[in-house]
Simulated assay, not measured.
Amino acid sequence: MDRAAIGIHGRRKPTLRRVASAVVAVLAVAFLSVPPAAALAFPTPKALTSFLDLECFKTNPYQPPATTLTLRHINPVLSGLPTETVTLGQREQLCVPVSKNTQVPPSPALDFIRYVDLACYKISGATVTTGLVLSHLNPLFQSLPRTQISLNTPQQLCVPVVKNNAVPPDEVLRLVRHIDLKCYAITPNTPLNQQVSLRQLNPVLTQTIPTHGAQILSARQLCVPVYKGGDNIPAEVLNIVRWIDLEKFDITTPTTLPTVSLTLRHINPVLARLPAEQAVLSGASQIALPVAKNGNFPPG
């Protein structure tokens, strides 16, 4: 090979190295300039509550370890009711998120609603006899007339859990872990008389419990948001969960739903010390529908 050829090839090698180095530098700058994934934004109180429908399944009886809780109302309409100390009784239900008919909750509300799983335990307490006017929030039922009810004796406390260790994303957990509802018996037990199709939203149950019909019957309870003593609710979370009011109605389902065995774990900091629970779902008995009290509608 002549010297001219050698000289040409000798000059090419440093040129190629310089090009390769430049490409690597450009790629590095591009990688470093990519912004981190944005945190999941909280929905407005109105967006979350309007689509928060829960189907409540009967569970096998389970008595948690002795637990005493101090409960304080956080919704503006009931803030004047007294703080009350209750003892956590036997578990009676697991309420899980569903969509009605062809309705799908919008994002970002859906990202949070699908992880609202509430285990409901029997409690007792003082009768309050408080009159309220309830308005449905879900768009499917907004045209229904308002109803006048009397809030009576507390019957259940529904607290947040996860099923089969399916922990939600951090931002979702930050909100749903503080949803605690105190459920009061109500009168009159006015029937809703609506036929709906229910579809599971939580990933653990979407492949287990099929879409099914349900006839919504009489109203039984109003579940209202409370603060448990010892909890530390961030202000932006409190501004959402304080608006969650759910009216529970009896339902019947035309088809027999499968029996489902689950492991439940408490996610609220006050109850996180409690052991995991085994729960067997043995049929849907109620549906909890979002309502507003006395015309005080969630903002947003």
Rank of each mutant, 00 (worst) to 15 (best):
C158M: 05
L264Y: 12
V176L: 06
V96Q: 12
T130Y: 14
A30I: 15
V159M: 03
T102P: 01
E171N: 05
I179W: 01
A166G: 00
R114Q: 09
I267H: 02
D117V: 15
P35I: 09
E84R: 06
P188F: 02
I6Y: 05
F112G: 04
A219N: 08
R273Y: 15
V224T: 10
N202C: 10
L217W: 06
W243L: 01
N60S: 12
I233D: 03
I216Q: 06
P191E: 01
L32K: 06
L201R: 09
P97E: 13
T187M: 06
S99F: 08
T190E: 11
P76A: 07
P45A: 04
L27H: 04
A66L: 12
R273V: 11
V224W: 00
A288N: 07
V237E: 03
E92R: 15
Y62C: 12
Y121D: 03
K46G: 12
R220F: 00
E247D: 03
R199Q: 11
L110C: 02
P82S: 08
A185P: 00
P160W: 13
P225E: 00
G230M: 09
Q207G: 07
T211Y: 09
L217Y: 05
L181T: 03
A22E: 05
P45T: 03
I6G: 08
Q286D: 11
G300E: 10
T15G: 12
L173D: 07
A288I: 05
T253A: 12
A5M: 08
K122W: 14
Y62D: 11
V26Y: 01
V280A: 12
A119Q: 03
L222H: 03
S99V: 04
G300K: 07
R199T: 15
L151G: 04
A41D: 11
K248D: 05
G89P: 04
F297P: 06
L271Q: 13
L144D: 10
N268R: 02
A219W: 07
P14V: 04
I244P: 00
K228D: 13
L281C: 04
Q103C: 14
H136P: 04
P65L: 00
H9L: 15
R18I: 10
S107P: 14
A284N: 01
I244N: 01
P269Q: 08
N296Y: 13
T83L: 06
A20M: 11
T127G: 10
L246V: 07
P160A: 11
P298E: 04
T15A: 15
Q63W: 12
Q207V: 03
S197K: 14
I209C: 02
T102R: 14
T70E: 11
N193M: 10
K100M: 13
T255R: 10
D111K: 07
A5S: 09
Y115I: 02
C56E: 13
Y184M: 09
Q195H: 11
A47Q: 14
